[in-house]
């Protein structure tokens, strides 16, 4: 770390969230720097989804502090994170199945007709919402035949595309994606990765949760390794091999303060074919 490191856009210290006996977040720290793609990786159940839910207002942590652009902030709900420009693609997508794509895209931020119809009669501007939704979906270049079909009639990948397009369309400060390519084919995954790059090129930071190591190494500027409810390490993909990162994720290796690795579990490390550096 250099002294001139930019201050984080979104930061968390000591987050804790318990569900009964399960501690989903166990004193987790988090730093997202301006304009970066930060990958968050970790085993199933490591607490990645819980962490980003705390960061996006979807759950209220039991303890810990969140800062947005350096200012301490408490999100009272998803609405309050959204009003600060943070958009999220949730792992289970959070779409309304019987509603069409445009309605999902504009859910909670519907456009009203101008003038009396909109003000007095609260009439929706369905046409404009359909048009704008069409533009956003076209940006993604994912094959969709119709925007008026219900989301439940889409394939899993198409649904994911809708959720991704919605988040990217509305984000003003941060985009968070929880496994956005999990259901996508090779071509569609590539399109989402392209989209993430385009978002970053606009200067907006992206948090990407993924189990796909080649994707992570392809696109991430930094990798946040999550383990047992807390941050185990933050590394640059250029400094480590995929095998080493996986070893950190599983606890075979740990990263010391100087950025070197230490063998924590020699058998596991040997099995993974990695050693300390």
């Amino acid at each position: 770390m250099t002294a001139t490191a930019p201050s984080p856009v979104l930061q968390a210290r000591g987050l804790v969230k318990r569900y009964g006996h399960v501690t989903a977040i166990d004193g987790a720290d988090f730093d997202l720097l301006p304009g970066e793609v930060l990958a968050v990786i970790g085993d199933n159940g490591a607490g990645k989804t819980s962490l980003i839910k705390a960061l996006t207002g979807a759950l209220v942590p039991d303890a810990g502090e969140i800062r947005l652009n350096g200012e301490p902030i408490q999100f009272s709900g998803p609405q309050s994170a959204r009003s600060h420009g943070i958009e999220t693609v949730y792992q289970d997508l959070a779409v309304a199945a019987s509603m069409d794509i445009a309605s999902n895209m504009f859910l909670g931020r519907e456009l009203r007709r101008p003038g009396l119809l909109g003000n007095a009669f609260r009439m929706l501007d369905k046409k404009r919402m359909r048009q704008e939704a069409a533009e956003h979906m076209a940006d993604l270049k994912i094959g969709l035949r119709s925007l008026t079909q219900a989301v439940e009639t889409l394939s899993g990948g198409q649904r994911q595309a809708v959720a991704v397009a919605r988040a990217v369309a509305w984000a003003r400060s941060v985009v968070v994606m929880d496994e956005p390519t999990a259901a996508l084919g090779v071509k569609e995954s590539g399109q989402v990765l392209d989209l993430i790059r385009r978002v970053r090129d606009k200067g907006m930071p992206v948090v990407l949760i993924s189990h796909n190591m080649p994707h992570v190494f392809e696109i991430a500027d930094r990798i946040h390794v999550h383990r047992l409810g807390r941050r185990a390490a933050v590394i640059k993909p250029s400094d480590y091999s995929m095998a080493e990162v996986v070893a950190i994720m599983t606890g075979a290796l740990t990263v010391d303060d100087a950025g070197g690795t230490v063998v924590a579990d020699s058998d596991a490390a040997k099995a993974a074919g990695v050693q300390a550096n």
């Binding site: 709900g77 998803p78 959070a94």
Partner: peptide, 16 residues
């Protein structure tokens, strides 16, 4: 309609 479809999704979409 969104509420009836999926209450948690409605909440995550910022609906009160």
């Amino acid at each position: 309609y969104a509420l009836g479809n999926n209450k948690e999704a409605a909440r995550l979409n910022g609906l009160r």
